[in-house]
Write a protein that binds this DNA or RNA. Sequence first.
DNA 1: TCCAAGTCAATATG
DNA 2: CATATTGACTTGGA
Length: 479
Amino acid sequence: APESPMSSSESVKSLTELVQQPCPAIETSKDGKPQESNEPPVSESQSTTPLPLSGHSALSIQELVAVSPELDTYGITKRVKEVLTDNNLGQRLFGETILGLTQGSVSDLLARPKPWHKLSLKGREPFVRMQLWLNDPNNVEKLMDMKRMEKKAYMKRRHSSVSDSQPCEPSSVGIDYSQGASPQPQHQLKKPRVVLAPEEKEALKRAYQQKPYPSPKTIEELATQLNLKTSTVINWFHNYRSRIRRELFIEEIQAGSQSQAGSSDSPSARSSRAVHSSEGDSCDGVDTEGPPEGKQSGLEADEYSNATTKSQGGQAESAFEVGEEVPQDARSSEKTESFHLGMESLEDTDDEGRLKAPRQSSPPGSQSSGETLETMPNSATEEDASTSAASTSVLTGESSFKSKESSEKMLSVPSTSSTLAAGSQKANSIQSLFSFSEAASSKNTRDNTLRKKKAANLNNIIHRLEKAASREEPVEWEF
DNA sequence: TCCAAGTCAATATG
DNA sequence: CATATTGACTTGGA
């Protein structure tokens, strides 16, 4: 098989190489790199590094991370993916032995790496490890060995059990795997893992568009209306916000990287990466509605609506202000819109339409039936307005306009880079922080007020985040 | 307390 | 089987 693609001519190393031996002075050889694999059972993860100042012994990665130069996370993941696929190595093995992470985390990391400057010290660690691994000439070989070993062990185990009736390899550990022991009864100790129904997700997304940072009160309402635990709603918002942010990051990275003028970047054919398909166009409305059937997969398409960002934190930027006037203050404009989340059924009576998940509990008397009423009394919360009038119930499809336009999509503008063509070179970073975008929408019909609103909303939170971020870290981003 | 960032781990998908 | 998605938990900062 084709082998040794290695870095060969790659000139990319440059700074990445530094990671290997950041400061010869201190580190000297010992290239053994601190790769230690963690044990299967939970890793150490010793929080708060106790600073092994005493030196000797392994130099923790955290120290390496601390001195590591800026790494190209996107490039690293791209190469790692190539190497892994070229050699038939799985994420699980790689993650557990090299990164000390589980398969799911690895998948996520490889698919959506955040730009270096947006990573915390902890978040940079896996990337440093990956770079270290890439620099290791025997990386593949080592992993292959591990794989073989694992297979062997597995085979052995299986064999004995199959051919041998009494494998009992576990002999040592007490009989029955403790723990759950009786698999049957399965007390409910196991926790079912909440799975939100598509309708519920839709409702939450809609709520998010109106208020990305719902007040406790709003959260309560949502929880009640959707018949979910409050913590679930809270978690959902946290996760959603976080994941949306991530989407923006990758856009940023892609935009930045695309400027590459040759050099680097091997022409690997496959490449992965999903292109953002844009979409759009025309007819929109229409559709859908009935979630039940068909195309479940396609439904998300827009998923976290792509946002169009635009940083304007205060300076600059005005340049490309979008053409359209944005309803500044998304907040106020919001009140016009109502919550209407279209979902009809849900909750309804008993009979199991299958819709209702196993969700246990259910607040004491809550949810009676029919009708959902809208709880929206006072308000007067600090955010004032916000939901206020709006919210009709989240469920009830009864709101007059459940309209079909529900499918909101926020056009995702393929950030065309305007500026970026520029030199870049040099620090290579250029990431530009946020793409401008917009422009596109202009042509569209003007009825996109809805979109604008959403965009404003997202911009809003982005600003807040940026502000906060810059405050704490006077780094350079943001030129 | 809230939040963000990282992860885990169950479970979807392919 | 491997990979992708996602609700929940953990950490660390104000």
